[in-house]
């Protein structure tokens, strides 16, 4: 029989760890938000190409309808824009900035955004912003949902490319089959060899 001290030692040797049970590349829930490699650069780009221009426009009191670019911040509008299928092709690419680390942004909505962007027929670059960006952005523009959608065709292509380089691609394997409709094909027209003696006919499906 081992002494109490020995058992105590044996137990103490084990440490408590937390293992991820549900994580796997199929559902890929931990990487549901695409990785941003250089967050500081992304913010600087955003500041240079978007926020500074916004500031000028607001200072000059230019009406929102006459801005040289469109900016969407309302959730319903963004949802509609992303889900609509009748946009011209040049409007198909967009960048969606989301302050997903800030505590004020509703988590219910945040959970659905990565799914939304990967389900969309359009090319959406989803960019997560670091913590505290919401207050920075709100100095320039009101963000009622912590989201900022920019259609790329109205912005400098350098800006778009540089942002795209920083963001990894979304990879949610389980959503891929959902993007396409099921085919209704049951029979495919094909050809079969002519019957020779007693051999059974082979029909290709």
């Amino acid at each position: 029989m081992s002494s109490l001290k020995a058992t105590d030692k044996r137990i103490a040797k084990r440490r408590q760890v937390y293992k991820t049970i549900l994580s796997n590349p199929f559902v890929n829930e931990e990487h549901i938000w695409p990785h941003v490699s250089n967050q500081q650069l992304v913010i600087e780009l955003l500041q240079k190409y978007v926020l500074n221009k916004l500031q000028h426009l607001i200072e000059m009191n230019v009406d929102k309808s006459q801005w040289p670019f469109t900016i969407m911040t309302d959730f319903n509008k963004i949802y509609k824009y992303i889900s609509s299928s009748d946009l011209p092709t040049y409007d198909n690419k967009m960048i969606l900035f989301v302050c997903n680390k800030d505590p004020d942004v509703p988590s219910v909505m945040l959970q659905q955004i990565p799914l939304l962007t990967s389900m969309s027929q359009k090319e959406i670059i989803l960019v997560q912003l670091p913590k505290g960006t919401l207050t920075l952005l709100q100095k320039y523009i009101e963000l009622p949902y912590g989201m900022l959608l920019l259609p790329t065709n109205q912005f400098d292509p350098i800006f778009v490319n540089q942002i795209q380089e920083q963001v990894s691609k979304q990879n949610l394997a389980w959503l891929k089959p959902l993007k396409y409709k099921h085919t209704d094909i049951k029979l495919v027209k094909s050809s079969a060899p002519l019957i020779t003696k007693n051999k059974e006919t082979k029909t290709k499906k």
């Binding site: 959730f75 949802y79 509703p106 219910v108 909505m109 659905q112 939304l116 389900m119």
Partner: peptide, 23 residues
């Protein structure tokens, strides 16, 4: 499983100081 655009519609309304998300 909720998948927006596929089997779920999400909309949001603002009522006073609260946001209502409807799925």
């Amino acid at each position: 499983v909720h998948v927006p655009l596929y089997n779920t519609d999400i909309s949001s309304t603002i009522e006073g100081t609260k946001e209502m998300f409807k799925m």
